[in-house]
Structures are given as structure tokens and as C-alpha cells.
């Protein structure tokens, strides 16, 4: 009975219901986009750190980390690290920033690696050994063979990677350590870190050993505020969605006070009436959640930043949406419970 009245009422007010669904879906879609952007920050950090395939990061002792506070050291210090117990291999890397104007003016993250060494992307040795060659992320919009300008020097794109960005979507370009030193370290034989396979128990004086989690923390520091802001916006968006659902249900109750009074007067249990309203709120939320997935898929390509909505978010959204919808309808439900059946006797039609 509850579902019949609830369903018929939705059909009766289908325009308002449709507007409620679309408005709520837009809010949910924005929430999904925000989740996707926030998740992409974490994902790019994981991908970036994972791409180096290093067990340890040896940096200067006074450095914040290899990405946010790169302090240089002589590349030759890698030799000392190689000799440490537990280290199977160690190679210097240079983590720098550069600019490009191909195809458009942009900042890039510049990584200099020993071709074939620790930190060198798999299969990149031959590409990088040729000199003046770069492995560029696809987000730069370049293809293999294209010219790539780095700090005014010409490079050739030897390979293209996917998802290799950090610091909120800034593309990563990998070159040989020698090229990186020429581009950003004045041609000096310097490095900003030594990557190891195997983990040394201790490091030489003046150096510090960082694990992957330390490096991820270092990479995440610049985007932490952005992520906090996004989290706050997501909470606000949930509140807005709840407000829309709550308003739709409350208006529905206000419009139907006489109907509710009459139903009570003829012996329809209050729980049945409340059930109908909960059904409306749940249906509105569920449809909005489903529509929001389609909207998110449509809008995401237009977003400048990477949007990587976790699969779990897609799965939990309908459930959370229904719960939020039901909670949001509580004010309306309370109003419905409080309707006096005596109102059914009011005279005017």
C-alpha cells in the first residue's frame, strides 16, 4: 500500500520529481568529480613512486624529500651507497622542474635517470641512451617522434607514458641523468637522490634514507591543502544534495497534508504513510545517484585535471545516497507523522 501511494504520488508530481532527480544528480556528479580529482592525487603519487621501483631513497640529510626539497649531492656518492650492506644496486637520479612550449607552454616534472639503472622506466634504456631523447607523459599531448622543448633545448619524444604526473597533474618527462644535469644543474655531475635496490641498514654521514611511504608523504605535501579543500567541498555537496531531497519530500508532505489527514482518519497506519515517503526519498536518491554516474562520465573529459573515481565510490554512492536521502526526508516525515487527522474534516476542496 505504501509503495502504491508513494509511487503514484511520484507519477503525479513527475515534473517536480524529475527536477529533483536532475538537480540532485548534478550535485552528486560534482561530488564524484571531486572524489575523482582527490583520488587522482593519491593515485599519481602511488604511480610516480612505484615507477622508480626503488627500495630506498638516499637524500641529503637536510632535505625535506626528493620531490619537494631536492638538495643536490655529487652523483659519485652513489658508489658509496652501492657498497653498503643490503644494497644490491644504487643509481643517482635528479628530480627537477623544467618548462616547455611544446605543444603549449607548460611546467613539467623533469626526472633524470641512469638509463637501465634504478629509477629508469622499464625498457627505456635504449631510448634514453641515444641522448636528447625523452619519455613524456601523454598529458603533454605529444607523440613518439615529436620535438619536445625543455628549458629551450630540443629533445625528441622517444616514448610516451600514461598517468605519469605528480603535483596535481603536472606531466613527468624522463631524460638521461646527463641531459637532466645539463638542463637543470648547470652541467655539473650532481644528483638529488640515490635510489637503491635492497635496503641499507645505515647510510653515510650527511645522508638520510627514506622509504616509499616517506617519499609519498613528500610528494603529497603540496596537494594536501587542495585535498582538504576538496573534502570540505564534498561534504558541502552532500549537504546540498540532502537539502534538495529533503525539500522535495517536505514540499510533497506540505502539499498532501489533507490527503495524509484523510488517510489517517480512515485507518491507514502512520508507518504506511511514512513508508511511502521514505520510498519517494530513496527512489529520488537512487535515480539521482545512477544519473550522476552518467553525468560524471560525460563531464570528466572536460575537466583539466585527472579524474579517477575509485570503483568503490561508484558502488557505494547509491547506498550512501539512499541513506542520505532517507535522513534528509526526516523533517518531512516528522511533519507527516504530526498531521492531525481532524484536518480531513476541513470543508473546502
Amino acid at each position: 500500500m505504501a509503495w502504491l501511494i508513494g509511487l503514484r504520488d511520484l507519477q503525479w508530481g513527475r515534473r517536480r520529481f524529475a527536477i529533483g532527480v536532475v538537480a540532485t544528480a548534478l550535485v552528486f556528479a560534482l561530488g564524484l568529480l571531486m572524489s575523482g580529482v582527490s583520488a587522482s592525487f593519491d593515485n599519481e603519487i602511488d604511480r610516480t613512486v612505484g615507477s622508480f621501483d626503488a627500495d630506498g631513497w638516499v637524500v641529503r640529510g637536510d632535505s625535506f624529500g626528493p620531490f619537494t626539497g631536492p638538495a643536490t649531492m655529487a652523483s659519485a656518492r652513489a658508489a658509496a651507497v652501492r657498497k653498503l650492506p643490503g644494497v644490491r644496486r644504487a643509481d643517482p637520479v635528479a628530480v627537477l622542474r623544467a618548462t616547455t612550449d611544446t605543444p603549449d607552454r607548460a611546467n613539467v616534472n623533469l626526472i633524470g635517470v641512469v638509463p637501465g639503472g634504478v629509477g629508469s622506466p622499464p625498457g627505456s634504456a635504449r631510448v634514453l641512451q641515444s641522448g636528447r631523447a625523452a619519455i613524456a607523459d601523454e598529458s603533454l599531448g605529444l607523440a613518439v617522434g615529436d620535438r619536445l622543448d625543455l628549458n629551450g633545448a630540443d629533445f625528441r619524444v622517444g616514448a610516451v607514458t600514461s598517468g605519469m604526473t605528480y603535483f596535481a597533474g603536472i606531466p613527468t618527462v624522463t631524460v638521461s641523468l646527463g641531459d637532466a644535469q645539463r638542463l637543470g644543474l648547470g652541467g655539473l655531475d650532481l644528483a638529488t637522490a640515490v635510489l637503491t635496490r635492497g635496503r641499507p641498514a645505515t647510510v653515510p654521514a650527511g645522508l638520510a634514507l627514506l622509504g616509499s611511504s616517506d617519499v609519498k608523504e613528500d610528494l603529497g605535501r603540496p596537494v594536501r591543502q587542495a585535498q582538504q579543500t576538496i573534502s570540505l567541498i564534498r561534504v558541502l555537496l552532500w549537504i546540498v544534495a540532502a537539502g534538495i531531497i529533503g525539500a522535495v519530500v517536505y514540499l510533497s508532505v506540505l502539499e498532501r497534508v489533507r490527503d495524509l489527514a484523510a488517510l489517517k482518519a480512515i485507518g491507514v497506519a502512520t508507518r504506511d504513510l511514512v513508508g511511502g515517503l521514505i520510498l519517494q526519498a530513496a527512489l529520488l536518491s537512487l535515480l539521482a545517484a545512477l544519473l550522476s554516474v552518467a553525468l560524471e562520465e560525460a563531464i570528466a573529459p572536460a575537466v583539466a585535471m585527472s579524474v579517477e573515481v575509485p570503483a568503490l565510490t561508484f558502488l557505494t554512492l547509491p547506498i550512501v545516497a539512499v541513506l542520505v536521502g532517507v535522513v534528509a526526508s526526516l523533517i518531512g516525515l516528522r511533519r507527516a507523522v504530526g498531521v492531525d487527522p481532524a484536518l480531513a474534516f476541513a470543508g473546502s476542496r
Binding site: L4, I5, D9, W12, R258, D259, A265, F345, R349
Partner: peptide, 12 residues
């Protein structure tokens, strides 16, 4: 009860 305003549900 037959109410003065009938109070039939308009959606049904």
C-alpha cells in the same frame, strides 16, 4: 467516513 471535500487521493 465520507468527508465534505471527499479527500480522494488525486494521484490514484
Amino acid at each position: 467516513v465520507v468527508f465534505q471535500a471527499f479527500n480522494l487521493l488525486p494521484s490514484l
